[in-house]
Amino acid sequence: MASRRRMLLKVIILGDSGVGKTSLMNQYVNRKFSNQYKATIGADFLTKEVQFEDRLFTLQIWDTAGQERFQSLGVAFYRGADCCVLVYDVNVMKSFDNLNNWREEFLIQASPSDPENFPFVVLGNKIDVDGGNSRVVSEKKAKAWCTSKGNIPYFETSAKEGFNVEAAFQCIAKNALKNEPEEEIYLPDTIDVAGGGRQQRSSGCEC
């Protein structure tokens, strides 16, 4: 166990039902896309090893149910998050309008220590649909919103075609890492398994 131990970065993906959260995660981790995903019930996560400045990290990416009704579960899933990814469908205005709700709900439920500076990343997904002709949210509009919320990084993606997904998640990982307090970053890999690591918010526990 101890040898597998490395810095864990926890990322939560939020957004309306059907905007492509599961697809984005799966495209990034497995480089695969399927038309046959099921609506996510509860929550699940995938992990991926990422290298950043010569050090390895484990990115733990949480995929959650999109229906608002399941939000009360968030308390259990959001805690200890290092970065929150807000996803909308560029072809569905409502999914964009809801970004603010998702962001606020996250801040309430995860209650990060420094909400003002908690890292978010916004992804406008499904830009491939209908060659972009069915698009209803412009890039400009999306970027304006991101700017207004404290310069949230913004990416336009297509999980189906794998477009911009890697770049988006690199940014996500970087931001998640930034959120980690310095002292935890340099925690040696071999720190005790018995419980010392457990006290670290998200640097241990990947056993």
Partner: peptide, 11 residues
């Protein structure tokens, strides 16, 4: 047998 290995997309 992680989900990665199970090719989740091909349920």
């Amino acid at each position: 047998g992680t989900i990665e290995e199970e090719e989740r997309g091909e349920d």
